[in-house]
Design a protein around this nucleic acid. Structure first.
Length: 488
RNA sequence: CGGGGAGUAGUUCAGUUGGCUAGAACGCUGCGUUUGGGACGCAGAGGCCGCAGGUUCAAGUCCUGUCUCCCCGACCA
């Protein structure tokens, strides 16, 4: 059995995805059901994502805070549709103590230590935060309130997959409160744009974004907007959402304020979030059969320098590569000098490829003699020799070029795999074959949406545009074009 | 919760109709030779064959029970 090749994407996409994660050393399954251990290299990517996104969140005026992981059951059950949406996937704390079991083997839950009120491990923090907000807000001068939280949350999903859907996951949730619906609607769209910009500029992912259908709405929201990316197997992955919560939560959590007209009003709220699932989107969209490909902006190691030497040339090459390392480090963070003597160059090339490092620099005696180094870019695997004196400028430009190239590729894939159709036969044919996004008119009736889902597995991902057409399923005239796809 | 599959070395697995001291590859340790695409040689460490019963002269292998994990669906960011 060979452990060299990664499963080709065409053969078994799901297995290929798991291989990429394992071989890049990003994460592994833990012994806890559905939970994942994010390993140091994977976590470093997450930290880069966090850093960049946190900056953008703060630019919007939001401040970071932290709320409890436990939500009293009673809080959780105030907003009727919210409960309905999350009830099926909640982990609940019922006891606060263990004791030795009677046969002396191990421990049991102490039945004496039952909580008076059970605590729900947060599946999202609306309720616990808004309970607090009701005490923070009393005047129009307290608005808008913008709070962001980086946290772990738990959703007891039936089926889990690393990064895409784990029982516990890390995310960022922004919660804002506004005096008027106009303001909160603006905020919802601002957050949505922040996410789609982030996808493009940082993750190098082209996306669709827009309003969700009634059935895909967040539990308790007036309207939900989402960002959708396309994976290499033609399925869509939602990686961010932004909700217009209206006054639903304000009413049940007693959040009200005295407006400048002297009247007491309920404010308008929004919430928006993205999770570690984004990393799944990055892994799935950019990687190839050699392994992970990371957009430079989130790569923990942007450049790996590999000295190639033998006993005779060792000193000279190492000295040269150390100088090179110093030189490049002046302009780039995340340079790795791989001086390990016990590994062959080929092994190292492969190792950094699997990890998705954007640029590899090879340097041996024959380069030094010509005063050159070899630069290899991960996205195209092109090899070029460049003069070692201009290395700093060259790698900076190349990192940017790789970032842009990945986005360009992603954009092309999205465009080439988006089909506008007007007949249901065509619709079904595409979703049975190469899949991808399908733009089609839909009358808005849940019945049609459900039938389409049942027959093709595709659902509405987001609203596309207004035009003129007939519902792809029932044929009724409608102005609404929607983006459909088979989701993860 | 339905449908499949698997539990044997750190990992992936082989182990025939029950039969000698349970194997391989990769990984790991030591020594030596190597080093421009996953190096090679030699030596070594590493196992309650998921767990509990049973059948048998003899069980990794057969039977019963039990636990766990993985994959494919339904639920979902």
């Amino acid at each position: 059995m060979s452990n060299k090749g990664i499963t080709p994407r065409s053969e078994n996409y799901s297995q290929w995805y798991l291989d990429v994660i394992e071989r890049a050393d990003l994460a592994e399954n833990s012994s806890v059901r559905g939970c994942m251990v994010i390993k140091p290299y994977g976590f470093a990517i997450w930290e880069n994502i966090q850093k960049e996104l946190d900056r953008r969140i703060k630019e919007s005026g939001a401040k970071n805070a932290y709320f409890p992981i436990f939500i009293p059951k009673s809080f959780f059950s105030k907003e009727a549709s919210h409960v309905k949406g999350f009830a099926k996937e909640c982990a609940v704390v019922t006891h606060y103590r263990l004791k030795e079991s009677e046969d002396g083997k191990g421990v049991i839950v102490d039945p004496e230590a039952k909580l008076e009120e059970e605590l729900v491990v947060r599946p999202t923090s609306e309720t616990i935060m808004y309970d607090t907000f009701s005490r923070w807000i009393s005047s129009w001068r307290d608005l808008p309130l913008r709070i962001n939280q980086w946290a772990n949350i738990v959703r007891w999903e039936k089926r889990t997959r690393p990064f895409l859907r784990t029982t516990e996951f890390l995310w960022q949730e922004g919660h804002t409160v506004h005096a008027t619906h106009g303001e909160s609607e603006k905020e919802v769209l601002r957050a949505l744009k922040m996410y789609s910009d982030f996808a493009k500029e940082v993750l190098a992912l082209e996306v669709y974004s827009g309003r969700k259908s009634e059935s895909e709405k967040f539990a308790g929201a007036l309207n939900t907007y989402g960002v959708e990316a396309l994976m290499q197997d033609g399925k869509a992955l939602q990686f961010g959402t932004s909700h217009d919560l209206g006054q639903n939560f304000a009413k049940v959590f007693g959040i009200s304020f005295a407006d400048d007209d002297g009247k007491t009003k309920h404010p308008w709220q929004t919430s928006w979030g993205v999770s570690t699932r984004m990393m799944g989107a990055v892994i799935m969209s950019h990687s190839d059969d050699l392994g992970l490909i990371l957009p430079p902006r989130i790569a923990p190691i942007k450049i790996a320098i590999i000295p190639i030497f033998n006993d005779e040339s060792q000193n000279e090459v190492l000295q040269f590569s150390e100088n090179l390392y110093e030189e490049i480090s002046k302009v780039v963070d995340g340079v790795e000098l791989d001086q390990r003597e016990f590994l062959s160059p080929g092994f190292k090339f492969n190792e950094w490829e699997k990890k998705g490092v954007p640029i590899r620099i090879e340097i041996g005696k024959r380069d030094i003699e010509k005063d050159e180094v070899v630069i290899v870019r991960r996205d195209t695997n092109e090899k070029n020799s460049v003069n070692s004196r201009e290395i700093g400028v060259r790698v900076l430009a190349l990192l940017e070029e790789i970032q842009q190239n990945l986005l360009k590729r992603s954009t092309e894939i999205l465009q080439n795999n988006t089909h506008e159709v007007s007949s249901y036969t065509e619709f079904k044919k595409i979703l049975k074959g190469k899949k991808g996004f399908v733009k089609a008119y839909w009358c808005g009736r849940e019945e049609c949406e459900e039938n389409i889902k049942y027959e093709t597995k595709a659902t509405t991902r987001c609203f596309s545009k207004e035009g003129e057409g007939n519902c792809i399923y029932c044929g009724k005239e409608t102005a609404d074009e929607w983006v459909f796809a088979i989701p993860y």
